[in-house]
Write a protein that binds this DNA or RNA. Sequence first.
DNA 1: CTAGAACTTGACGTCGGCGTGAAGTGCAAG
DNA 2: CTTGCACTTCACGCCGACGTCAAGTTCTAG
Lengths: 156, 156
Amino acid sequence: MRIGELAEQAGVSTRALRYYEEQLLLSPQRTSGGQRVYPETAVGRVKIIRQLYAAGLSSRLIAELLPAIDARSMEPELLDRLSAERARIEAKAAELQAASRRLEVLIGLATHPDTESCPASLDPGPSGARRDNSPTSGVGTDAELPSLRRVPAYST
Amino acid sequence: MRIGELAEQAGVSTRALRYYEEQLLLSPQRTSGGQRVYPETAVGRVKIIRQLYAAGLSSRLIAELLPAIDARSMEPELLDRLSAERARIEAKAAELQAASRRLEVLIGLATHPDTESCPASLDPGPSGARRDNSPTSGVGTDAELPSLRRVPAYST
DNA sequence: CTAGAACTTGACGTCGGCGTGAAGTGCAAG
DNA sequence: CTTGCACTTCACGCCGACGTCAAGTTCTAG
């Protein structure tokens, strides 16, 4: 199959496919005229690639990972790097959830009628799964936000 | 106080402070010579800005948010956008966690001795808090990954 | 007065995963 | 042969929050 068909079947753009090839994730054959020819298996392969991208992996790491998946065999060192990546992704997810909780507090302050003087420390607190205290580009000590109330919203 | 001192006290770079000003998040006064002069309150303000950045907000949204925080009063429309932002951040966090679970599966496949023919569907499944089925730049239908085993690692 | 630290504006670099032309070539149908 | 779509390579654009020179100015201590 050629690039257009693969793009459609895999649900990606032709530009993306050429980019993947540039990143050595795909190695299609060529016709005598220079056009790319992919095997049927390429559809699944592209989907796997998308999965790995969606997992936050860089094209570099994916390029190293794919041969291992093909060979059904992984070097321990690569396995370690994969674990490290997963840890980073987990940390990022946790950070985002903490951020979401902070926003939730802020929204709550503006949504509720001013319920007492709620101490809005905007500190997410250790409510999640924080294993380490790595920097994670930390936002230092937390600042306080003043209380908010919703504006009456005149009859617009 | 001048920019260097503020930078140190707030824990950011002077470049960042100038960038914040460019984004209309800060509006310091100037000396006759043109140097920036910040009030003491700027320290807290910068920390709040950092919090909002950490919450995944864009400088554009922060710029609209800060006056509301200053005025302790928020327009409902702005509140809605804030909620939408929070929803997006939540979705992103959930997506990352799903990705992390996928990686965990992949790592597990390579780590365990080949425990039976475990059907590695790499489907995160509904194990988390997925409220909606919004696109979230979805990776379409899930692909299968073959099983893996760890390579013996010769005595290196 | 002078050294030099701290400051100023300006502008280009970064990182990644593509989007989006531009200009030319391959291929199948009528 | 010709139309015309799919394809090719090349290469710049983009987004965002700054980092990082570069060259000039201001402030402060001695």
